[in-house]
Simulated assay, not measured.
Amino acid sequence: MSGIALVRKPGPRIAEGIVTHIEREPVDYERAAAQHDAYVAALAGGGWRPAYAKPADDLPDAPFVEDAVVVAGRVAVLTRPGAAERRPEVESVAQAVRELGMKTVRIAPPGTLDGGDVLQVGATVYVGRSARTNDHGITQLTALVPERRVVPVDMTGVLHLKSAVTALPDGTLIGDPRYVDLPDLLVPPEESGAHVVLMGGDRVLMAASAPQTATMLEKRGLSVTTVDISEFEKLEGCVTCLSVLIEE
């Protein structure tokens, strides 16, 4: 499996990004930019060709492109972020996916939906009810992806569903049961071990902050690539929210 990795470079105002469930820490813009370059290089090394959304230096959270669009096949569902100050991020992402030849549909008011609340596992789509994603948004997404089974998930104490749980290549859910109630969770040794990007086959991308989880997954037969995203973790970011992978 390979394709396109939609990404966006962080801007110099990144330190002003929204923080909800953790204490704010200083964010080093230059270090964040270098970490982002290394993250994109890791995806490229896994066969994912980078495609950059236009810079949005006036929007601090703009590098978290996952929240602006949900890709289902060749359809791009443009979201309506729950944080009003993040909604201007969507139009430039919309332009990027249209330039990639994708059909776009859109979440409309009063619906809100953040892409970070959407976890696709085969034909099943888990959607977290959160401060950013409401029932109107979940209902609209269900109608926009009729070929998928949409499963609403209650959660607590984290920003997004994918802050608490993602999936391994075989469909096993890996996550933290303190934040989300899903059956048969594989519990990682570190909180950031719940965040896994599938790069195709047995290859996964993870944060360097979860070395014990990386070892655990390697023992399960997976090929693990790790990247340092510490500056983004200070903003409740994780490896999943910095890209949207589009299969070709």
Rank of each mutant, 00 (worst) to 15 (best):
D114N: 06
R74P: 10
A96W: 00
A194S: 14
G47I: 04
G73M: 10
G175S: 11
V19W: 05
I22K: 08
P211I: 04
A214L: 08
S223W: 13
H160P: 03
A51H: 11
A76N: 06
Q95I: 15
K219E: 13
I14L: 15
T20S: 14
L6M: 08
D184R: 10
I4C: 09
S92K: 14
H36T: 08
D57C: 12
I14K: 03
V75M: 09
A32Y: 01
L242R: 00
E218R: 15
P109C: 08
V93R: 00
R178I: 07
G200R: 06
D61R: 02
L205H: 02
L161Y: 01
E30T: 15
E23N: 15
I22S: 14
L78S: 03
T156Q: 14
E190S: 10
V158M: 08
D61I: 00
G45A: 11
E147T: 10
R148Q: 12
S130D: 06
E25C: 12
V244I: 10
V97L: 05
A68T: 12
E30Q: 15
T124V: 15
E248K: 13
V151P: 05
G221W: 11
A131C: 13
R13E: 06
G46Q: 01
V187T: 13
S230M: 14
V227F: 03
G193C: 09
E16K: 07
P10T: 00
N134D: 08
L242K: 02
I18K: 05
V70E: 00
P177H: 09
R13N: 12
Q212N: 12
L159N: 01
I18V: 12
R13A: 07
A214K: 00
I22R: 11
R49I: 08
C238F: 04
E91S: 13
V19H: 04
T213S: 07
A5G: 06
E23V: 13
A131M: 14
E231V: 05
G82V: 01
L43G: 03
Y52R: 14
E89P: 00
V105D: 04
K103H: 13
A51C: 11
G73F: 07
R49Y: 10
H136Y: 11
Y126N: 01
E66S: 04
M155G: 01
D28A: 09
R24H: 13
L173A: 07
V239C: 01
E89V: 03
V71L: 07
R178F: 12
P146W: 09
L113N: 01
P211C: 10
L222T: 11
S130T: 03
G221S: 14
P211A: 05
P109T: 12
E66Y: 01
D135P: 06
V90L: 09
G171Q: 11
V118K: 02
G115Y: 00
R31L: 15
R106P: 07
D61Q: 03
C241T: 02
D61S: 08
M216V: 10
A41V: 15
